[in-house]
Computed example of a mutant assay.
Amino acid sequence: MNDIDAWVWWLVGAAALGIPLVVTAMPEFGMLAVGAVAAAIGAGLGLGAVAQVLVFIVVSVALIAVVRPIAARHSAQRPQLATGVDALKGKQAVVLERVDGSGNGRIKLAGEIWSARSLDTDRAYEVGEEVDVVDIEGATAIVI
Rank of each mutant, 00 (worst) to 15 (best):
D86Q: 07
V99S: 02
V66M: 13
I70F: 13
A93W: 00
V66D: 11
Y125A: 02
L119E: 02
A87R: 03
V61R: 06
N104P: 04
K108N: 07
H74D: 12
R78C: 03
V99F: 03
D100T: 01
A124V: 05
K91T: 14
I107E: 01
G111V: 07
E130K: 03
V59T: 02
D86L: 06
R68E: 05
V131I: 02
R123A: 10
L63H: 03
L109K: 11
S115Q: 07
R123W: 09
V127G: 08
E126F: 10
L109T: 09
D86V: 02
E112S: 13
G128D: 01
S102W: 12
L96E: 00
V85S: 12
L81D: 12
D86R: 04
L63Y: 05
I113G: 01
E126S: 14
Y125D: 07
A116P: 00
V127I: 12
A124C: 08
R123P: 06
T121R: 09
Y125C: 05
A82R: 15
I107G: 01
R117T: 07
K91S: 14
R117N: 10
G111T: 08
A76I: 14
G103R: 02
I70H: 09
A110R: 12
A62Q: 07
S115F: 07
A65I: 05
Q92R: 05
L63V: 04
G101N: 06
H74R: 14
